[in-house]
Design a protein around this nucleic acid. Structure first.
Lengths: 188, 188
DNA sequence: GAGAGCATGTAAGAGGTTACATGATTCC
DNA sequence: GGAATCATGTAACCTCTTACATGCTCTC
């Protein structure tokens, strides 16, 4: 239930609407490690009010749709702080590409290679996008909040890079094996 | 829908029961990148039969519970092969630890550090377990199937290692910042 | 006698995604 | 005139997890 806690975190910084949480907070800062759907944000906020972790106040606007401003409650703050201190299990991440590779015996090496290459360009694009995020390097970070944000980015960079390195290794291994089998088999 | 495709892959290798798929296949080979729940395996197999991707035959056993042996159909094979060739988007992986770090401004640095250290020992344990898996290194792999299995393992090793490196970086950065602020602030 | 192995299943829920709806205003 | 912004929501669906049930056999 980390969406709930991320919402609590943002609300702890300042009271906001669901819309602002989506467009100004999630999409602009944590999207690369915790993307959040609009529908789900609204649903979760509702539930949080129900559970006493937040309150909402309707602000009437004349030229625009009314909005609900959510604030964190004392109980919400306690819940957040407690969760932040809780150690947890690493998430499992299921990667369809690995399933494809694992069963690549059933397709041509060329087909597998092109799937891997397509993944490579995807990851390259994602890495590029992460690199374009502008946060000072770890050594030059100001307050703790900036350092924390930088460190989360740092993991993104490292893990995309590791994935790309691996893709190269896989592409190499499969294409060199393919060359060998072409030589030993009858010429095609 | 990779569970479906993983099941098709295993059934393509040989007809099997749901129980065997769970205990002999998933738990023993792909668990570290695609763990699968027993309940979900049975449900998915049902659906696959409904969709014409597999068939099941009941084998009556006297001293043990009867079993259903699933086989892949021609349509299932086509579906598998087609999926294997399809490029896909990298999965999003949501990591609660990053959310905790991102909002660590609301807790003591010591608490954050102990969460990170606990994650470190978790990842170390997982890495150790991956290292204990016995598949020949890439250069010495025999058939394509073995190479593919090795490569999936290779990614596991690399990404756990990258995560551990990052954890060290984060622990360093936060504890050195903490030392600094202790010096500049009043002694505690 | 207790527990593990074999083998299949039901029921309920958590978390996330997709598609769609509303209705005013502002910008090109 | 058409698209984007603001702002909230409903309904249906998919994937995965948790808890529980059954009942026989074999081993300690």
């Amino acid at each position: 239930m980390s969406l709930k806690h991320a919402l609590l975190g943002f609300l702890r910084r300042k009271p906001q609407t669901g819309y602002a949480l989506k467009t100004e907070q999630f999409d602009k800062s944590v999207a690369y490690f915790w993307p959040a759907d609009q529908t789900q944000i609204y649903k979760t906020l509702d539930k949080m009010v129900e559970d006493g972790l937040a309150t909402s106040k309707i602000e009437v606007q004349l030229d625009r749709p009314n909005r609900k401003i959510y604030s964190i409650t004392a109980q919400g703050s306690r819940e957040l702080e407690q969760w932040l201190c809780e150690p947890g299990k690493p998430p499992v991440d299921r990667d369809p590409l690995l399933v494809q590779l694992f069963f690549s015996e059933f397709i041509d090496a060329d087909d597998m290679l092109s799937v891997l290459k397509s993944a490579k360009s995807e990851y390259q694009a994602q890495l590029k996008q992460l690199r374009s995020i502008d946060i000072a390097p770890v050594a030059k970070c100001g307050e703790g909040r900036e350092l924390a944000a930088r460190l989360t980015l740092e993991l993104g960079l490292k893990s995309k890079q590791a994935y790309l390195d691996w893709l190269d290794q896989a592409i190499d291994a499969i294409s060199s094996r393919q060359r060998k089998s072409k030589k030993s088999g009858r010429a095609k």
